[in-house]
Amino acid sequence: MSGLRPLHASRSAVLVAMAVLAAAVTLAMVGLRGPAPAQSQEQIVHEIAAGLRCPVCADLSAADSPAPLARQMRTQIADKLAQGDSPEEIRRSFIAAYGSSVLMTPPREGLGRLVYAFPFLALVVALGAGGVLLRRTLRRGPTTAAESRPARLTEADRRRVELALDRLRVEEP
């Protein structure tokens, strides 16, 4: 039966594999989840504005800010959409004037790429570490039921215990 792995080792391996799989699925879901598709014109305007920073506010999007300039940005987005510009063209026009810092999330270029690559790098590292751990667990060899039982007393130990008990009985009758 050399091909079969003992029960304890297999259970550990399955647990490690499940943990790695759960981490991989979670990361993949976070990485792949995208915004729900916009429906109305108003929703598209809101979606574009939500991705743009209000230039005169501290960390507020053009969709959330009550500042007049943010309101004007929303109007301009609506106007440009009505003229037939695509959301990407509209975003690019704001980047042309303000730079990429106008975006609420880092651009997928330059240093910003690292932010997007990080979850996938973490996934690769997690899978690698999980694989190494799994291999080690499986290599550790069979753990039999006899091994997991407490060691038996030798004859000498047994005699020593009996002597000690006899002494106690004499001292405390």
């Binding site: 230039p55 005169v56 300039l69 004007q72 109007t75 004037a97 730079g99």
Partner: peptide, 13 residues
């Protein structure tokens, strides 16, 4: 009037 020039110039204040 409608901040068009401000937005085109990337005005922050």
């Amino acid at each position: 009037t409608d901040s068009t020039a401000a937005l085109a110039f990337g005005l922050r204040g």
